[in-house]
């Protein structure tokens, strides 16, 4: 039990980097980016292949990040310059990346078992908190720079920030790039932690990222950027703990996980709007009852 919880925290920390990437597109740019499913595996593939060829795992992780940046830039270009619908440009890149990832890996999976990884000398549980917090703080800082502000405004009110001279095409491409860079970095670290990269390792990653973002915001709030990124990190860890607990239920199979994740996201997306409409209805009912009593009193009184 305890060991599975520790494992969950470990995975949650590594996947938190991916969740931060999803936060950038989904929440800041308001752009549901499906590239993630491809770029996560791209990161893993770059890491596994280069590490098995003896390159430094730190350098390799950095290159995986760069690979993700490039993938994200392509999606951004398709969407802004090619004027392709956001979802579709993500799907197109996801499919394209499948072939590219296969070229990188050269076979469906590559093992780095026994090779030197970033986790060889330091356990993930010790290393990852520092890495994750550092990335979170750097991201927070970036989102408060002039460039970061215009990136946030692009998702919030693109017309407004254009009228102040920011090129929203560029900020969109930048945001999607950084997002996929983080996703690929996360993929590279997962490959090193699990000891292999697999062509299918990115499948469903976008939904896991969304689940982390939504769970985190629901539990820990999202008032400021600082708070929201923190919530995303914790959301990723909570998600992994939920998964670990779900796997302990006897009649559940590991392959049911994706279904559970989808259900979590659906509940999290539907619940707030249902809650709002119920609240509005009951408020309206109360108010009309109030007005009705007021009107009936007046007519009974009749002292005009």
């Amino acid at each position: 039990m305890v060991s599975s919880l520790i494992g969950a925290v470990e995975l949650g920390l590594i996947y938190a980097i991916m969740a931060l990437g999803v936060y950038i597109t989904f929440r800041i740019l308001d752009f549901p980016d499906l590239t993630v499913d491809g770029s996560f595996a791209t990161g893993g593939a770059i890491a596994a292949v280069m590490i098995s060829h003896g390159y430094s795992p730190w350098l390799v992780s950095l290159l995986a990040f760069a690979g993700g940046l490039a993938a994200g830039a392509c999606t951004g270009l398709l969407h802004t310059k090619g004027k392709i619908n956001g979802l579709l440009s993500g799907i197109l890149m996801m499919i394209a990346l499948y072939s590219i990832n296969m070229r990188i890996l050269d076979k469906p999976n590559v093992s780095v078992y026994g090779e030197d990884t970033v986790f060889t000398s330091i356990s993930p549980l010790v290393l990852m908190p520092f890495v994750v917090i550092a990335i979170k703080l750097l991201l927070d800082l970036f989102l408060h720079t002039d460039l970061g502000l215009s990136l946030r405004a692009t998702g919030d009110n693109a017309r407004m920030i254009r009228s102040f001279g920011a090129n929203t095409d560029n900020t969109t491409i930048l945001g999607i790039s950084i997002s996929n860079g983080l996703v690929a970095l996360s993929g590279a670290l997962i490959a090193q932690q699990s000891g292999f990269a697999d062509i299918t390792m990115g499948v469903g990653m976008i939904v896991i990222g969304l689940a982390s973002v939504i769970i985190g915001e629901a539990i820990f709030g999202a008032g400021s950027v600082f708070r929201a990124t923190f919530a995303v990190l914790l959301g990723s860890i909570v998600y992994r703990i939920v998964v670990a607990l779900a796997l302990r239920v006897e009649w559940m199979e590991a392959s049911d996980l994706k279904l559970i994740t989808a259900v979590i996201v659906i509940i999290a997306l539907v619940f707030p709007s249902v809650q709002r409409s119920i609240k509005q209805k009951s408020a309206a009912r109360r108010r009309s009852a109030e007005l009705a009593t007021l009107a009936s009193k007046k007519s009974i009184g009749g002292d005009y």
């Binding site: 970036f142 408060h144 002039d146 215009s150 405004a153 920030i161 102040f164 001279g165 920011a166």
Partner: peptide
């Protein structure tokens, strides 16, 4: 203040200096 900072950056290069 963030909105004002974005307006203040009109005509300038938007770089990595802190907005507010």
């Amino acid at each position: 203040e963030e909105n004002l900072a974005m307006a203040y950056a009109r005509g300038k290069r938007r770089g990595l200096s802190i907005g507010v």
